[in-house]
């Protein structure tokens, strides 16, 4: 009976290890694919910019394209680090540390989010340069303001959707971690 039980547990463990390995490989492949796609898009975009520049595209368009590309790379790097941190929760830490990290991780506004303003500003600058024709002429200022109103409006919608997702998915986890930590430290 004991042998059977042991055999059974060995088989279960083997299956689990097999599944974990598959999961690890899947994550690795996904990360590599994402990185590949990102650098692929950046390379193609860079080539297009160079070709357009050689063919005599106006300089604001070329610089604008370059700035937008830079913003895209910064966004991609930021979100790669962000998702890496979410996936790699260390359960081997002392409970109070694990909870403190969870509270920090699920905070809606983090200090490092300030760095997101850099790619956002670059995006804005890039689009402004890219659409320079639209901002020339008699109604340049009005057009500039309208374009920025759209840009800020889209950002606001993005933030609001992000807030709703945070409120539904992350806030309950953060509240629970705060409650547990308070209880431990009381």
């Amino acid at each position: 009976m004991e042998t059977n039980n042991n055999n059974k547990s060995v088989v279960t463990l083997e299956t689990l290890i097999h599944n974990l390995r598959i999961e690890d490989n899947r994550n690795l492949t996904l990360t590599r694919t994402m990185q590949g796609v990102m650098w692929g898009v950046v390379t193609i975009y860079a080539i297009i910019l160079v070709v357009k520049s050689i063919m005599g595209a106006p300089w604001p368009e070329t610089i604008g394209g370059f700035v937008v590309m830079l913003a895209f790379v910064l966004f991609a790097l930021f979100f790669r680090n962000y998702s890496k941190e979410y996936k790699s929760v260390d359960y081997g830490l002392p409970t109070t540390q694990m909870l403190s990290k969870a509270i920090q991780r699920y905070q809606i506004f983090q200090r490092r989010s300030i760095f997101l303003l850099i790619p956002l500003a670059l995006e804005d600058l890039g689009l402004t340069l890219f659409m320079h024709d639209f901002f020339n002429g008699q109604h340049a200022i009005t057009n500039l303001l309208i374009a920025h109103a759209y840009f800020i409006g889209l950002l606001a919608i993005g933030f609001f959707v992000g807030y709703l997702i945070w409120k539904k998915r992350h806030k309950p986890l953060r509240d629970y971690a705060i409650k547990l930590l308070k209880e431990i430290q009381s």
């Binding site: 081997g92 830490l93 002392p94 409970t95 694990m98 547990l180």
Partner: peptide, 9 residues
């Protein structure tokens, strides 16, 4: 034990 307790939480 840390992993077990943290997982249990």
């Amino acid at each position: 034990y840390r992993i077990a307790v943290n997982t249990s939480l």
